[in-house]
């Protein structure tokens, strides 16, 4: 399968998914760590992809989303942002609401 199709399938199949450096338990980057913590704090299950363990995704995700950095957080197939936006949504109390609606 083409890599962009594979990514498309991942973000469609998982209502909430984070592409991050490392894993939620063993993050390899401060930005990925903070974004994953915000998702965990919402108490909604989410999928993750460790981009450091999948070079094809590491290289191609930026062009899939026209977004050059990691982490990237997708809700219902849409990029909601990276670390800054996710933390901002979390602080405003909007993140939990978005995630809850996504998994209904």
């Amino acid at each position: 399968m083409d890599i962009l199709e594979r990514i498309k399938e991942q973000v469609t199949a998982n209502p909430v998914i984070i592409y991050m450096k490392g894993t939620p338990k063993m993050p390899q980057c401060g930005f990925s760590s903070r974004a994953a913590q915000a998702l965990q704090a919402c108490g909604i299950p989410f999928a993750y992809v460790n981009v450091l363990a999948d070079e094809e995704i590491l290289v191609n995700l930026p062009r899939f989303a026209n977004w050059p950095t990691f982490p990237q957080i997708y809700v219902k197939g849409e990029l909601i942002g990276g670390c800054d936006i996710t933390l901002e949504l979390h602080q405003k109390g909007e993140l939990k609401q978005m995630l809850e609606q996504a998994v209904v």
């Binding site: 977004w67 950095t69 909601i80 942002g81 990276g82 800054d84 936006i85 901002e88």
Partner: peptide
């Protein structure tokens, strides 16, 4: 929105 703004910066 925030995603659009960040993309403009990038």
């Amino acid at each position: 929105n925030l995603v659009q703004r960040h993309r403009m910066v990038y």
